[in-house]
Amino acid sequence: MRIPQPIAGQVVVITGAARGIGAALAQRLAERGAQVALLGLEPEQLAAAAARCGDRAAWFECDVTDPDALATAVAGVQERFGGVDVLVANAGIAMGSPLSLSDPAAYDRVIEVNLLGSIRTVRAFLPLLVRNRGYYLQIASLAALAPTPMITAYGASKAGVEAFALGLRTELTGHGVRVGVAYLSFTDTDMGRVAGRSGRLRLHDLDAAITRIVNGIEHRSTYVYGQAFIRLLRPVRGLMPGVVHLLGRGPAARFETALAQAGPQASSPIGPGGRADTKARANDPDPAPESGSRP
């Protein structure tokens, strides 16, 4: 087992940090002595999350799909902290809809934020990670292992970020940068609660998932499991599409019928994070990067 590196004193950048996994992870790492940079779209939520982290935190308003906004955030992080030791690519949105009923722009946006946003984030911060021989953790999902109907945009994006991160792992070995992928099932966050209600699913404890992620960061693990049972599924992932197909056909048909009756608004990105992304694009189709910090 790899010897853990204490997180105290290290600089950790977390995207999608205004709420949910990102905000909770930032707070836990700050409690362990890390310096944390929180990136996201919601200034008030980011400021509140950073305040909970104490004096070692700063926040930056940033759309991870916008290279200019990312460049501004990188400059701000470098000025505030001097470098980056850990990058957690967590920003993501989701929607639940069959392809035939989904809004094309919303469907494509899920893939843009989750996949291209992660790629652009890593590209922007990579020079600082290489300089510090750091660690990049990509937040993926159980959906990367088990392709699931009605969330095909989300599943495709999470399978994509898994493939991206694991391929990059080999590229970056010679530069001293370690890479990991974290897999989570439905977790008790804002987005998870919305998805859980629609699918009548039991949500997994957020604190327990954060503990597992922090442990993965300290060990710079290649694979991090937000819930223990996911570890058992990775070796049999080849069987998962068939299992999902057999068990999911009936529920998928019923869900499609219900969604068709609900109307187009039912296929919008879910949860406060999804609404924040939709609002940001509606209010400013060509956003100028902004940043804020808490000294």
Rank of each mutant, 00 (worst) to 15 (best):
A282N: 08
V243W: 11
G271K: 05
I213G: 03
I139L: 12
A252N: 06
A51C: 08
G174S: 11
A258D: 13
I93C: 05
D284K: 00
A143C: 13
P43R: 07
G9C: 08
A195I: 15
Y107V: 07
L246M: 09
M150H: 12
A144E: 04
A153I: 01
S97I: 04
R281N: 11
Q45G: 11
R197W: 13
Q35A: 12
I93H: 03
I21E: 04
I217H: 00
A182C: 15
G92V: 04
Y107D: 10
T148W: 02
P264I: 04
V214D: 00
N114G: 06
D207G: 09
Y107Q: 08
M95I: 15
Q45T: 09
S141H: 01
A34L: 06
T222F: 01
T152V: 15
M240P: 07
A94E: 12
A165P: 02
D108A: 15
S118R: 03
G9D: 07
R294K: 06
L239W: 12
L116H: 12
T278M: 13
T211M: 10
V194N: 11
R237L: 09
G83T: 10
D108I: 15
A34G: 10
Q10T: 13
P4H: 06
A124D: 06
L39R: 01
A37P: 07
Y183N: 07
G16C: 03
D66G: 03
D207K: 05
P272R: 04
G134K: 00
I217K: 00
M240A: 13
T152C: 14
D66R: 04
A258F: 08
L99D: 05
V122W: 01
G9L: 07
A57L: 04
I93G: 03
V244L: 07
P264T: 04
Q227Y: 03
A51H: 11
N132C: 15
P241S: 08
A17F: 02
L145N: 02
A156R: 08
E171K: 05
L115P: 08
M150F: 13
P67Y: 10
A146Y: 03
A144G: 12
V243Y: 08
R32V: 01
